[in-house]
């Protein structure tokens, strides 16, 4: 995302989304778990070329590691099966369980990687703009954009309020119940304040003709380039070959 010159980053959002969908479909068309797992390194390479390798890898680990580990634990030990690979006391790992876990996690890894990649190489602003062009109502795009602006603001405010509570002597460390009690006084002024502000926001939006009954325009522009066409055709051809190969198999 930082690398403005990378070709991948400059693709139109819908083209990028097609890449993601193609990767997901491919993971389900190709049998077994090998290819599905390979989607992760494929995405890593793509992320590298878009200049967001580190971000991508961090998020992928955060999102996937725990769930994959737990699926393996739950399935390999407790999946009903007979082919015991390893056992310790009453616990035993069964081949059927491991295979099921491999199948399940490979699909999860593939789909999740493809989506993490999409959001690393696509600015939300661009995505929303392209959705607006397709005809998504401006009220919907307002909610999306406003949410993404609001979350970091509210998180900052929370930290400020929590610090204030601390200096006032409200416990944010210590026993469970004590910490629980610290929760409400932290949250409630923040929430009441932001809920009350919606009333004035309505006035702001109405003053800016938000509910005027005309088709809105936009000074922000995104161009489709010849590469978009190229990538789209390439993806469709690849998918078609994959399907033919799968059917013929």
């Amino acid at each position: 995302m930082n690398n403005e010159r990378s070709m991948l980053s400059r693709l139109y959002p819908t083209t990028k989304f097609m890449i993601t969908i193609a990767l997901c479909l491919a993971a389900f068309i190709v049998p077994g778990y090998g290819f599905s797992y390979a989607v992760l390194p494929i995405c890593m390479v793509l992320a590298y070329f878009a200049g967001s390798f580190k971000e991508f890898s961090n998020l992928a680990i955060k999102a996937l590691l725990m769930i994959v580990v737990f699926i393996f634990i739950l399935q390999s030990f407790f999946y009903p099966g007979h082919d015991i690979l390893w056992s310790w006391g009453i616990f035993s790992i069964k081949r059927e369980g491991v295979e099921f876990a491999l199948f399940l996690t490979s699909k999860i890894v593939a789909v999740a990687s493809a989506f993490i990649l999409f959001f690393r190489i696509t600015k939300v602003k661009d995505l929303v703009h392209s959705l607006e062009q397709i005809g998504l109502p401006s009220k919907v795009t307002y909610v999306i954009l406003s949410t993404l602006q609001l979350i970091p603001e509210m998180k900052k405010l929370t930290l400020v309020i929590m610090d204030a509570q601390k200096t006032r002597g409200v416990e944010t460390e210590g026993k469970l119940l004590v910490r629980m009690k610290a929760f409400l006084p932290t949250l409630s002024p923040l929430i009441l304040g932001s809920v009350a502000s919606t009333e004035e926001r309505v006035l702001t939006l109405e003053s800016r003709a938000f509910s005027a009954n005309v088709k809105k325009s936009s000074i922000y522009t995104l161009e489709k380039t010849k590469y978009d066409r190229l990538v789209q055709i390439l993806l469709i051809v690849l998918l078609a070959i994959l399907i033919v190969w799968r059917v013929a198999l």
């Binding site: 602003k125 401006s138 795009t141 307002y142 954009l145 406003s146 602006q149 609001l150 926001r201 702001t204 939006l205 003053s207 800016r208 003709a209 938000f210 005027a212 005309v214 088709k215 809105k216 325009s217 936009s218 000074i219 922000y220």
Partner: peptide
């Protein structure tokens, strides 16, 4: 502020965009 624009120029343009 509209809450959806990330720079002042677009913020000021918001009303006119809404008027199409």
């Amino acid at each position: 502020i509209s809450g959806v624009k990330d720079n002042v120029f677009e913020e000021i343009a918001f009303g006119l965009e809404n008027l199409g």
